[in-house]
């Protein structure tokens, strides 16, 4: 086929419009996160002390941390979804979550006797954390990948990893409502490992699935 023929065909196809990325994102991520929320309330559930914990700074910090990861991952994935877009400060913002948890851990170590550090770090249910966070991140991650495939990320691995961070952040937000461990030391170890597992998976999956 000659290039000018191709151009004629493309011109004829100009009337077929793709949905804008923002709509795809809202739909795909909404459906994915809704699936995780349904799973959480069906099989995991709020912890018994959820409502009486709402004024405890350690408990609340878990959500600051997880939502920071979710937001920073989402902004970066959104920026990376378009060719030639400059991620700018969004690329550095993903370090905000880990920085927050390290800072909080230092505060925790300053205010708790060193004999308690290890107990708080090990927590009650590290294995739960390591399985549920990756598990509940899957549906939002599939949604974000669908959006990224509709877009055109020129660096699939980075976009995949950013999407994974967002998905893990959302999943951690749900899991934090069940998890009995509130110490930043627990977050710094187990939430971070769980998130890292998802991010590494997103990196590799992005390299394979986000080509266009």
């Amino acid at each position: 086929m000659k290039t000018e023929d191709l151009i004629a065909a493309l011109t004829a196809d100009n009337e077929t419009k793709a949905a804008p990325l923002s709509r795809t994102l809202a739909l795909d991520l909404g459906l994915g996160f809704a699936a995780s929320i349904a799973f959480f309330f069906a099989f995991v559930g709020l912890r018994d002390t959820f409502f009486i914990s709402l004024d405890q700074p350690r408990f609340l910090f878990k959500f600051v941390f997880s939502l920071t990861m979710a937001a920073s991952g989402l902004v970066l994935a959104w920026r990376l979804a378009r060719p030639g877009a400059n991620p700018g400060r969004a690329a550095k913002a993903v370090l905000l979550g880990p920085a927050l948890v390290i800072l909080a851990s230092l505060v925790e170590m300053a205010v708790t006797p060193s004999g308690l550090w290890e107990t708080r770090m090990i927590g009650h249910n590290a294995l739960h954390c390591l399985t549920l966070i990756p598990l509940m991140s899957m549906a939002p991650l599939v949604g974000l990948f669908a959006t990224l495939r509709h877009g055109a990320p020129t660096d699939g691995r980075r976009a995949g990893a950013a999407a994974a961070l967002a998905a893990a952040g959302l999943s951690a937000t749900l899991y934090a409502m069940n998890c009995p461990d509130d110490s930043p030391l627990f977050l710094a170890v187990w939430y971070m490992i769980a998130t890292a597992i998802v991010v590494v998976a997103g990196w590799f999956a992005g390299g394979r699935l986000l080509r266009w």
């Binding site: 493309l10 990325l21 060719p83 030639g84 877009a85 400059n86 055109a152 020129t154």
Partner: peptide
């Protein structure tokens, strides 16, 4: 690719970097 991904161009941004990246 330009055609099938034209919805990823943000009209508030310059066109050249988008085209160059594709």
């Amino acid at each position: 690719a330009v055609h099938l991904k034209r919805h990823t161009w943000d009209p508030t941004q310059p066109l050249a970097p988008w085209l160059a990246a594709i």
